[in-house]
Amino acid sequence: MAAAAAAGAGPEMVRGQVFDVGPRYTNLSYIGEGAYGMVCSAYDNVNKVRVAIKKISPFEHQTYCQRTLREIKILLRFRHENIIGINDIIRAPTIEQMKDVYIVQDLMETDLYKLLKTQHLSNDHICYFLYQILRGLKYIHSANVLHRDLKPSNLLLNTTCDLKICDFGLARVADPDHDHTGFLTEYVATRWYRAPEIMLNSKGYTKSIDIWSVGCILAEMLSNRPIFPGKHYLDQLNHILGILGSPSQEDLNCIINLKARNYLLSLPHKNKVPWNRLFPNADSKALDLLDKMLTFNPHKRIEVEQALAHPYLEQYYDPSDEPIAEAPFKFDMELDDLPKEKLKELIFEETARFQPGYRS
Rank of each mutant, 00 (worst) to 15 (best):
180 H>K: 08
199 M>G: 03
33 E>W: 15
98 M>G: 13
73 K>P: 02
327 A>L: 14
224 N>G: 08
10 G>A: 08
34 G>P: 03
114 K>H: 06
57 S>F: 02
62 Q>I: 06
328 P>I: 10
90 I>M: 15
215 G>T: 02
249 Q>S: 14
10 G>E: 06
25 Y>Q: 05
234 L>M: 01
6 A>S: 04
82 N>I: 00
37 G>N: 02
287 L>E: 06
183 F>D: 06
11 P>E: 03
21 V>L: 01
133 I>L: 03
12 E>Q: 05
217 I>Q: 02
22 G>R: 02
291 D>L: 02
355 Q>F: 15
144 N>L: 06
153 S>V: 04
132 Q>H: 00
356 P>W: 15
60 E>K: 01
221 M>L: 00
83 I>P: 08
96 E>S: 13
281 N>R: 10
53 I>S: 06
256 I>H: 06
73 K>W: 07
236 Q>R: 05
295 T>F: 13
257 N>L: 07
250 E>H: 14
255 I>F: 01
278 L>K: 13
86 I>Y: 11
81 E>I: 11
127 C>H: 12
179 D>V: 00
136 G>T: 11
140 I>M: 07
309 A>D: 08
58 P>L: 08
116 L>I: 12
338 L>N: 09
238 N>K: 02
31 I>F: 01
151 K>R: 01
313 L>D: 04
254 C>M: 15
201 N>P: 04
82 N>K: 05
314 E>I: 15
193 Y>W: 07
51 V>W: 13
304 V>D: 01
166 C>T: 03
297 N>T: 00
98 M>H: 08
135 R>K: 11
81 E>G: 07
132 Q>N: 09
189 A>Q: 05
328 P>H: 00
195 A>N: 10
13 M>W: 11
186 E>D: 02
209 I>L: 02
272 K>Y: 10
48 K>T: 08
293 M>Q: 03
181 T>H: 08
243 I>P: 04
263 Y>Q: 08
60 E>N: 14
80 H>E: 14
228 F>T: 11
163 L>A: 11
230 G>D: 00
239 H>N: 00
332 D>Y: 00
77 R>D: 11
16 G>Q: 08
75 L>F: 08
237 L>Q: 01
260 A>E: 07
54 K>P: 03
301 R>L: 02
354 F>Q: 06
178 H>M: 06
268 P>Q: 12
68 T>S: 00
301 R>V: 04
271 N>L: 14
290 L>M: 07
214 V>S: 06
327 A>E: 09
242 G>D: 02
124 D>L: 09
355 Q>K: 00
72 I>L: 04
163 L>H: 07
168 F>T: 10
163 L>G: 12
330 K>Q: 08
133 I>W: 05
300 K>T: 08
35 A>V: 02
5 A>G: 12
56 I>N: 00
86 I>N: 03
13 M>Q: 05
88 D>T: 14
128 Y>D: 06
333 M>T: 11
29 S>P: 06
310 H>K: 06
332 D>L: 09
192 W>H: 03
199 M>I: 00
345 E>W: 15
128 Y>T: 11
25 Y>S: 05
283 D>K: 15
162 D>I: 14
344 K>H: 09
257 N>R: 07
23 P>F: 15
275 W>H: 07
207 K>R: 03
314 E>G: 13
66 Q>S: 05
196 P>V: 02
352 A>Q: 07
186 E>A: 06
2 A>W: 15
211 I>C: 08
234 L>W: 04
14 V>C: 07
123 N>I: 01
207 K>D: 09
344 K>N: 00
11 P>A: 04
308 L>K: 12
98 M>Y: 10
9 A>N: 15
117 K>R: 04
4 A>M: 09
46 V>K: 14
302 I>R: 02
267 L>F: 13
210 D>A: 02
120 H>S: 13
183 F>N: 06
305 E>Q: 13
4 A>G: 10
126 I>G: 07
112 L>G: 11
43 Y>C: 06
121 L>N: 09
273 V>D: 14
343 L>A: 06
138 K>P: 02
16 G>S: 11
184 L>I: 03
182 G>W: 00
120 H>D: 11
230 G>A: 10
190 T>R: 01
47 N>Y: 00
328 P>N: 11
304 V>R: 05
277 R>H: 12
115 L>Y: 14
328 P>L: 02
229 P>R: 05
188 V>R: 01
266 S>F: 14
123 N>F: 10
203 K>V: 02
300 K>C: 08
290 L>Q: 00
108 M>G: 10
13 M>I: 00
199 M>F: 03
93 P>M: 12
292 K>G: 08
259 K>R: 05
150 L>K: 05
261 R>Y: 07
287 L>Q: 01
110 T>Y: 08
166 C>M: 08
164 K>Y: 06
317 Y>N: 01
206 T>L: 01
56 I>A: 09
253 N>Q: 07
191 R>Q: 00
295 T>N: 04
150 L>A: 12
236 Q>E: 06
147 H>A: 05
133 I>Q: 11
250 E>V: 05
359 R>D: 07
176 P>C: 04
271 N>F: 14
114 K>G: 03
272 K>H: 12
225 R>H: 04
325 A>E: 03
157 L>V: 11
319 P>K: 11
139 Y>F: 01
62 Q>K: 00
129 F>C: 13
229 P>M: 10
308 L>I: 13
238 N>R: 08
65 C>W: 14
55 K>D: 07
42 A>N: 12
227 I>D: 08
142 S>A: 12
136 G>N: 06
18 V>G: 00
89 I>Q: 13
329 F>T: 13
313 L>K: 05
272 K>F: 11
16 G>I: 15
137 L>M: 06
42 A>D: 14
116 L>Y: 08
172 R>T: 04
109 E>I: 12
134 L>R: 04
87 N>E: 13
34 G>M: 07
57 S>L: 08
201 N>H: 06
187 Y>C: 02
7 A>C: 08
73 K>V: 06
246 S>K: 13
225 R>P: 07
194 R>G: 01
304 V>G: 00
84 I>W: 04
150 L>N: 07
99 K>N: 00
23 P>D: 14
63 T>C: 06
109 E>K: 01
244 L>R: 15
324 I>C: 13
156 L>R: 03
34 G>S: 10
278 L>Q: 00
260 A>P: 12
341 E>D: 00
85 G>T: 13
140 I>F: 00
343 L>N: 09
10 G>T: 11
291 D>T: 11
76 L>A: 13
348 F>A: 12
345 E>G: 14
147 H>M: 06
37 G>F: 02
277 R>A: 10
306 Q>I: 15
290 L>P: 00
320 S>T: 03
128 Y>A: 12
242 G>S: 06
147 H>F: 10
259 K>E: 03
294 L>S: 03
33 E>R: 10
31 I>P: 07
186 E>F: 10
350 E>T: 15
214 V>E: 00
166 C>W: 08
84 I>A: 13
247 P>H: 00
168 F>H: 10
190 T>I: 04
241 L>P: 03
222 L>W: 12
84 I>D: 06
293 M>W: 08
188 V>P: 07
187 Y>V: 04
183 F>M: 09
309 A>C: 15
152 P>M: 04
316 Y>H: 13
136 G>E: 01
338 L>V: 13
266 S>G: 00
218 L>E: 02
334 E>P: 11
48 K>W: 10
314 E>A: 12
240 I>M: 05
268 P>M: 11
250 E>W: 15
122 S>P: 11
25 Y>K: 05
160 T>S: 00
46 V>H: 14
41 S>G: 13
296 F>R: 02
141 H>W: 12
358 Y>N: 06
26 T>S: 00
338 L>W: 15
292 K>N: 01
352 A>V: 02
2 A>P: 05
275 W>T: 05
223 S>N: 09
360 S>D: 08
86 I>L: 10
181 T>G: 05
273 V>S: 11
254 C>D: 12
24 R>F: 14
110 T>P: 01
109 E>L: 04
248 S>N: 13
172 R>Y: 06
192 W>N: 03
197 E>G: 02
316 Y>G: 14
257 N>W: 02
13 M>V: 03
107 L>D: 02
123 N>V: 11
104 V>G: 08
102 Y>K: 08
275 W>R: 00
356 P>E: 11
169 G>E: 05
201 N>A: 10
155 L>M: 01
4 A>Q: 06
203 K>F: 06
104 V>M: 09
278 L>P: 12
6 A>C: 13
82 N>A: 10
326 E>R: 10
253 N>D: 15
212 W>G: 01
243 I>A: 13
220 E>I: 03
315 Q>D: 11
290 L>N: 03
